[in-house]
């Protein structure tokens, strides 16, 4: 049974080399099922730089004089800034079923009944609000008597303003269970939905640039950090630095979540990799 290690990406046409290059430079893995999507996006960039084949484009990205700039442009082509509520369900399921009970046991034992969570690239707010709803659902059971705080940051003031406003289209909440829609949103004229003030009060929005060391060192005592779909834009050196900050920002035993198909392989060996059903997370050792 000769299955190739790189799945069904045809060897030799340059596609699998391009996929490897994206993985090495951005830390995101594109599955074979994304092949056609990738091909069409590559084609646009190839036309722009005058590359006639995937191989030629690969060579351009490896050795071209403005390879760094081209890699950035390629990343912009192949990523979407789209975000939505309950976007990565396995991650939130791990938060509810694995992490929260564990943290409640550990922190509860020393009588410190507070949780601090950071959504570090929160964009228009869908992620931190989702986290807040999940915690609020546990407020009378697992988290009874607990306080929690969610810090939500982004580098872009415009998206932060929209996050604070908290008004969303049907599209942004398409994955939200009906139960949550009814309980945590208020219908607006024109069909959009506004997040309820009860949810908003748990979240502190701030402008933070993850590159900014002076800001990063002040974010302390965190239990969980979410940093989804943003590290792909960083080069290796910056990525290492940001992850080291996250490591320092977390309490012992704290967790870091990154985006679906993202990887920290070769970026940091202090975090401990954990697999949960449908995803991976990184734990700062106890």
């Amino acid at each position: 049974m000769e299955t190739t290690y790189h799945g069904t990406a045809r060897a030799g046409d340059g596609m699998s080399q391009l996929r490897d290059l994206i993985y090495e430079t951005c830390g995101i893995y594109f599955a074979d099922s994304k092949r056609y999507f990738l091909e069409s996006r590559f084609a646009r960039r190839m036309e722009a730089v005058g590359a006639k084949s995937f191989k030629e484009y690969h060579s351009y990205l490896r050795h071209g004089s403005d390879r760094q700039a081209e890699i950035q442009k390629l990343i912009e082509e192949i990523t979407t800034n789209e975000t939505s509520f309950f976007r990565n369900m396995p991650q939130f399921q791990a938060l509810q079923t694995l992490i929260l009970p564990r943290m409640v046991a550990a922190k509860g034992a020393i009588g410190f009944k507070r949780l601090k969570i950071w959504s570090s690239a929160c964009s228009t707010g869908e992620e931190p609000y989702t986290i807040a709803m999940i915690l609020m659902e546990k407020a009378t059971t697992l988290l009874a008597g607990w306080g929690f705080e969610i810090i939500a940051t982004d580098i872009n003031d415009q998206v932060l303003a929209r996050a604070r406003e908290g008004i969303y289209s049907e599209y942004a909440i398409r994955a939200t269970p009906e139960y949550h829609k009814k309980k945590y949103f208020v219908a607006q004229p024109g069909g959009s939905l506004a997040i309820s003030p009860d949810v908003k009060k748990y979240i502190k929005f701030q402008n933070v640039n993850l590159y900014d060391d002076s800001r990063m060192v002040f974010l302390k005592g965190l239990d969980i950090i979410f940093c989804c779909n943003v590290l792909i834009y960083f080069d290796q050196t910056s990525k290492k630095k940001v992850i080291q900050h996250f490591y320092n920002n977390l309490n012992r035993g704290g967790y870091l979540f990154i985006g679906h198909s993202e990887s920290l392989f070769g970026i940091n060996d202090e975090f401990k990799l954990h697999h949960f059903p449908g995803g991976v997370m990184y734990q700062k050792p106890l």
């Binding site: 790189h6 993985y23 893995y29 990887s263 991976v280």
Partner: peptide
Amino acid sequence: DLERFTYELDE
């Protein structure tokens, strides 16, 4: 590289 191995398995 366990992350990559995991994602490759998904395929």
